[in-house]
Design a protein around this nucleic acid. Sequence first.
DNA 1: CTGAAAGCGCTTACAG
DNA 2: CTGAAAGCGCTTACAG
Lengths: 340, 340
Amino acid sequence: MQKIKLSTIGEALGVSTATVSLALRDSPLVADATREKVKAYALEIGYIYNRRAASLRTSKSGIIGVVVHDIMNPFYAEILRAIEIELDRSGQTFLLSNHYDSVDKQRAFLETLMQLGADGVIMSPAIDTPPGDIELGIKNGLPFVFVARSVDGADVPVFRGDDAYGIGLATNHLISLGHERIAMIGGTDKTSTGRDRYRGYVEAMARAGLKVRPQWRIAGPRTKAAGFEAASAFLALRDKPTAAVCWNDMVAIGLMNGIARAGLTPGVDISVTGYDDLEEASIATPALTTVWNGQRDVGRQAARALLDRIEGKRSLGGHLELIKPELHVRQSTSQPPENR
Amino acid sequence: MQKIKLSTIGEALGVSTATVSLALRDSPLVADATREKVKAYALEIGYIYNRRAASLRTSKSGIIGVVVHDIMNPFYAEILRAIEIELDRSGQTFLLSNHYDSVDKQRAFLETLMQLGADGVIMSPAIDTPPGDIELGIKNGLPFVFVARSVDGADVPVFRGDDAYGIGLATNHLISLGHERIAMIGGTDKTSTGRDRYRGYVEAMARAGLKVRPQWRIAGPRTKAAGFEAASAFLALRDKPTAAVCWNDMVAIGLMNGIARAGLTPGVDISVTGYDDLEEASIATPALTTVWNGQRDVGRQAARALLDRIEGKRSLGGHLELIKPELHVRQSTSQPPENR
DNA sequence: CTGAAAGCGCTTACAG
DNA sequence: CTGAAAGCGCTTACAG
């Protein structure tokens, strides 16, 4: 079978390829009758538009890259879902990748995007991303928007939740229930998010005049499995805390599973808070008290900003858009046992 | 800044673009000295390879499409992870999409792949995919490989777990513990997987001489939330079953949460089996007895088959590759209370 | 409202 | 081992 292209249609209908091209894209320059005739015939013979050729000519590709740490992580999944909805609406194709916090894998993906002439990229940068990697992309005409994380020294807009404020909501909630020994489980200081959340916890404790002991900070876990494993370290602490502020819902649920496995009742013997308010949080047992982090707004606003930039409606400076989190109280938090 | 292309390099170095092109791709036709000179200079000035131009010329794009129901679903996530590893190794870019079981969304994605000249597609087809949609792709030079699901009438290789056998393992396990009233929760008869799993359950019951009551089949749920909700319907059944074979781990975990919320103890009062053996299954409380479904093998073999096809090492007929599942026994199953 | 022609940046015969 | 030339399939001034 011969490959069908614009000229195939043009020859069959006795018009030029220029006219066919304009007709298929609904140009008002083309007479209505011609347009209908062309479109009907294209459909009939099963014409497939060649985006590579068009893109080579116009240097627009209709491709938007999206890179996050791990698309299978429900936190990012919810952001991606919002981005997907926004991009689908505008007919952009989105090219997804995980970087698993490997700067090399991220760089390879950005290189691929440049090779494909991507119109822009939405990313949650890998830990220790050099600003140079971002600048290189920008220099090659790739507009960036960051979600959830940022890169110091990169002039790129960032959309994320207000982490210090949000973790403060969780910590204050526990304090108001009467808890005084509160641990913080999970996360790392290597991301801006991590530093902000830790700061929010420390500040909330300080405002209440409570001590923060170094051993109460069990850094690391960010997954359910890791939260599960952290339970034994947590339960072995001297001066065992009566509550745990967790890095995210995954860690909190894992920790609660670990606490339950040890024969204690999470939400009664130990209060636990999560972060993100994933769909799972509300069906966990006990239902998880957590902080809604605005994933949907983050994704939607980031996609919107990039699309506006691509359509020339705005330029992208390095501003920070903080989405205000909200506390959702459920059954995993209660008064400390000693107060009952 | 002027756009850097092959001719930019050629002019600077006094060689032709043909030589530059060959040198960058390590052609043995080019003298070693020339090759090194060209590569060094390209790196120095930050040349970006234009894949659109190359692809237009060669009609190979280096893009492989991957479509599944929902990439955020951990079952598909594990398959995707295996595909990702395999494709990364061969330098292919993979373009991911959800179809959410919308034939229209799937069709739009396949159309995009054809427009981009994708080299192939790995898909878990949407429910009720018309064979014509697949044939159209094949006719336009897009090789297909299916994972987890198939389409009747499409001549495409399929890689998936042996569902009837696998669900039989779970059902037999419960029967051997002494259960006689066993429900099946979740899933749909609209996919080949659904039909196979239901058949496996019915056949295992029949082999043991046990009755299957229609009301013991609570179809529908495939998510944790839906499993959670199904708990009340399950617990309200007359002749309440003592065990539930669930469609997958998500449903099983949701169901266990619902059972626990109702004050019963899953794994003691009601035995529950899952399917897939997701990472979560082992850390659930109680740890979930489930069937490992070979996601990794499915993804790896499917990717390998497609890559071999693209490299011309094999052709793709419509054969079925069944991966043998394995039962993983944990704490969510025990003897029925009445036998103790 | 329509057509002829140039050009996007590569790769591939072909000639030397 | 290297170069000149054609062509992949579009879109965009430009001319009429």
